[in-house]
Design a protein around this nucleic acid. Structure first.
Lengths: 194, 194
DNA sequence: TTTTTATGACTGACCGTCGGTCAATTAAAT
DNA sequence: ATTTAATTGACCGACGGTCAGTCATAAAAA
């Protein structure tokens, strides 16, 4: 017949080659032409591998979120106090300039999925949420058995995820001091140890 | 010399006349041509009164949020238990079909302000946040003095606002059960009364 | 009072951009 | 030579935004 390319692989490669482009311009300013040029293919080729613009942006963002989850995993397994784990868990997206770029992209992703009811996007968000909850639960369990957390309080990981989402969204406001907010939350759920 | 119109008033009138249009179509599907037609003016006229599309959408959404704040005020002053006040405070946007339309609008507002760094928009958001915090603080104060809340816990209104924001954003996910999440939170901060 | 003039309000044809399509082309496999 | 997967960029339609020109009216001039 003719050449057979690994569609899935090429899809990922195109996405990978445009990571920096997305970080630099953000979703809105990113054009398909730019993407095609950066990936070194024709514009039409993009549509061989992606449904539409969201689809490709989504694929790129996925790579970021997967990395993010990996870091969260590391935090949950690190040899630090539960309080520190939780702090880093929430503060991860704010820690430095690179993190803030990722934060911006994540905010844009949230913005899109708030207005577009794309099924795949929602499913992916669900999966992320569940993963976050899983990791948080592990941290909470360790903290409870070690006595670091206010165990009788029945903190649920899903509530904490809501707090985290709020943090991401409201961090755009100057009246929201991220570090302080996290500390306040931790003061409630983590026992004083003296 | 020539006719002088009240720019501010006409601006508001154009916005008002398009409330239903926005509720019906959402931001993305809303076109300037539609807006102009609905408002009964030419397309160019829109740009006499608004900077750009976001500017006009923002003006419309503002009218919804102002209404929302009024309802929150009412809740905070109602003759119900603190737990009920807090529940309604968070559940207000989910209570019925009309509320859900407003929820959608609020989500779209969040979406816009997540991606556009417009100064006025941020300032308005700050004001909203401060107002929310103010109302919540009033509820919390009453609840603390009446002994309904776990007073020693130092719940901060701003943390609760973050929770609320997260609730709005994550409510688009089926894995997020709004009522349950609110109840869980309230179980932590409200004393059992038996 | 009537005419002229200045100017803000208004308009929609037009422009540039961009997401998305498709007919034509290429090239590998048979 | 034929078939077929893969690729491409010219093209399309939609949309946000602009601007040169028109309109309406109040003030000034006659």
């Amino acid at each position: 017949m003719a050449i057979i390319v690994n569609k899935e692989e090429k899809r990922k490669n195109i996405a990978l080659s445009c990571r920096e482009l997305l970080l630099k311009h953000g979703i809105d300013k990113l054009t398909i032409s730019q993407i095609a040029q950066t990936a070194g293919v024709g514009k039409g080729t993009i549509y061989e591998y992606f449904e539409n613009k969201e689809d490709i942006v989504f694929e790129i963002i996925t790579t970021f979120i997967v990395e993010h989850e990996k870091k969260l995993e590391e935090i949950s397994l690190a040899d630090i106090s539960t309080r520190e784990k939780l702090f880093h868990f929430f503060y991860l997206l704010f820690e430095n300039e690179t993190a803030k770029k990722h934060l911006n992209i994540y905010k844009e992703f949230l913005a899109i999925s708030l207005t577009h009811e794309a099924k795949e996007m929602l499913e992916f968000s669900e999966q992320c949420r569940e993963k976050f909850i899983m990791i948080l639960n592990r941290i909470l369990e360790v903290g409870t058995t070690s006595g670091e957390l206010n165990g009788e309080m029945q903190i649920s990981a899903s509530s904490l995820v809501l707090f985290g989402t709020g943090l991401v969204v409201d961090s755009r406001l100057t009246t929201c001091n991220v570090e302080q907010e996290i500390d306040r939350l931790l003061n409630i759920i983590v026992k004083e140890r003296k």
